[in-house]
Write a protein that binds this DNA or RNA. Structure first.
Lengths: 347, 347
DNA sequence: TCGAACTAGTCAATCGTTTGAGTGACGCCT
DNA sequence: AGGCGTCACTCAAACGATTGACTAGTTCGA
């Protein structure tokens, strides 16, 4: 009788019958598709669509077009700030390109594989951005049901990857310590199986060697809060104790600092520390000098690469070409004078 | 000619033609639907489904059933560990109930509203778990296109909510400090507009009053790293400086600690601190004594409530009935003797 | 004046599932 | 022998959108 509150969202059919055209005409008009219509018909359709606040039913459209308009992001740890920054870049770009983003945390290889398989099998997504390590189960899952995917912050044999220049970041960290006068350097990082750790280690050791300091103390521990704590303890127990260390991961930096403090080692008076940057580094005591990586760009580029793959274009490995930069805060100082650095710190 | 690699995932039709039955029969069998079939037919269908590794096409099914099998989670900050814990609980339970979870970060009210509107308009989800504040834009968006939704860790006038017992947690924090002998207490929390802050403040102040300590110093700053830092600075500048403080949020605890240290105030010798618990609290210096909240359960229950609403059952507000517990670490000690606490610390 | 070309659309199939209604064959009871 | 009830299925219409093929009517060129 009257305009009752329409509970059901508008469909193309609603528009078409209201205007008095065929559904297909309405579809072509709202999509700007290849069809010729009189301006007034076009206007009528568009007006009606606006009036009804028409939004296409994603499922129906996707069923037909065989595209879901969704991309999945697989990551190992939601609380690790590096992913938060990356995701922000990725989500923004994805939205611009018309995708919805489905973020999933996978705590281990089996979980990664099962999430991947499920989402792909049910055809819920067009492609994956993968920030977890490509281990056995996941590799098998991808093999079994391949969809476009790009690894982010990780190189992998089975797909394209988008990474930042970890080597450059590590070299910059080394240079920072070396320029402050440190001769005995320490490195905290995960094992070389983790490719980010491998690249950072390579960069740091390489730069140290170039500066005539080949004896970097290496602490291999997982990239986790506990790992950083343990690693720092190890480093400080080394026989010639390092005076400057690079904690090559975000989480690890904070907990390494706590480990030093727990031993009564003062930062930066007794020990200088450089880590990778994130917001928390401002609110530690002391605030941590850190290397900022272009994480946002990494996320953005990952989406662009994935989009290219979904569109069938040729993908490529990309290293984000924004250089890491040093954020000087308060955790780096010249090394202490005592043990055995005679006059060379004078310069 | 030969079994060529089947690129296309199996459909019901594949199964049906292979077995020689109608699609609808196959559908009913794989869904365990109400139909009677001979055991051998059933077996044949199930076998074929297994052989082809059949998984229903989510979109097609959902188009028909008008359910998407997906729930959205809207949260303000991915890096805030409280949400990570909550999400883990939510995702696990959602999966058990057959939902896929779509996590979205909304940095402000406008973003919340636009994410909500988009996902709902495109009918991509069945319901929302909302962990952001219900402000103007979001409220308008929900009003315009209502779908089942539950607020988590937040009470809201426009929907059901699942919360933990923030008051009890705050009372426990107060008791911890009081039992250690503190007489001058401080509280760090967001403004009362944020309902979690309001409840925590009420609990803390109430317990203090009960113990004959009505003069709690209150520092109102946003729940953020910077907010915690600034708040702690304020508290330590108060005229009778508090000796025990409760930083009523996870992020805020860590940065308050850094602020104290930056002023040369030692924890716990000069200042005791209690905060809410998360992993990082183990790796600060000193490790922080904290109140653990049942966040995982909160996520779980939120999903259950949402599920109930989606199924059309009557929803209710729920407060998780697991009590907050104290995790004693190293940031609480008796107050220092000097300024003006005479003999009463002797006991 | 015939046909080609254009205009402004319409038709119908299709994506993969679900689901209520229908149906042929058989057994059983009276 | 007729009728009723099961059994074991099949049929066909949805869900909402997309898209290539098709068409009725007009215009234009030769």
């Amino acid at each position: 009788m009257t305009e009752s509150p329409r509970p059901r969202p508008a469909t193309l059919k609603d528009i078409a019958t209201a205007v008095g055209v065929d559904i297909s005409t309405a579809s072509k008009v709202v999509n700007g598709g290849g069809i010729s219509v009189r301006p007034e018909t076009r206007k009528a359709i568009l007006d009606e669509a606006a009036r009804l606040n028409y939004r296409p039913h994603a499922l129906a459209r996707n069923l037909r077009t065989r595209r879901t308009g969704a991309i999945g992001v697989l990551l190992p740890d939601l609380t690790n700030p590096i992913y938060a920054a990356t995701i922000r870049g990725a989500v923004r770009r994805a939205e611009e390109l018309g995708y919805v983003t489905l973020v999933a945390e996978a705590q281990d290889d089996a979980a990664s594989a099962s999430i991947y398989s499920k989402l792909v099998a049910e055809r819920r997504i067009d492609g994956f951005i993968i920030a977890v390590a490509a281990k056995r189960d996941l590799i098998a899952a991808i093999d079994a049901q391949p969809v476009p995917h790009v690894f982010v912050n990780r190189r992998a044999s089975i797909g394209r990857s988008v990474t930042v220049d970890d080597e450059a970041a590590a070299r910059l960290a080394a240079r920072t310590l070396i320029e402050a006068g440190h001769k005995r350097l320490g490195f905290i990082g995960d094992s070389d199986e983790m490719d980010t750790a491998r690249r950072r280690r390579a960069g740091f050791f390489g730069e140290a060697r170039k500066a005539g300091l080949p004896d970097v103390v290496d602490a291999v521990e997982p990239y986790s809060r506990r790992g950083g704590f343990d690693a720092c303890l190890k480093l400080l127990a080394a026989k010639p104790r390092p005076t400057g260390i690079f904690a090559s991961n975000l989480l690890v930096g904070i907990s390494a600092l706590a480990a030093a403090r727990s031993l009564g080692v003062r930062v930066p008076e007794d020990l200088s520390m450089v880590t990778l940057d994130f917001e928390d580094a401002n609110y530690s005591a002391p605030p941590l000098t850190a290397i900022a990586m272009p994480l946002d760009e990494m996320g953005t580029l990952a989406v662009e690469e994935l989009h290219a793959m979904i569109e069938g274009r040729e993908p490529k490995d990309v290293v984000v070409d924004v250089a890491p930069t040093l954020i000087s805060r308060a955790s780096v100082a010249p090394p202490p004078k005592w043990p055995d650095s005679p006059a060379d710190a004078g310069q």
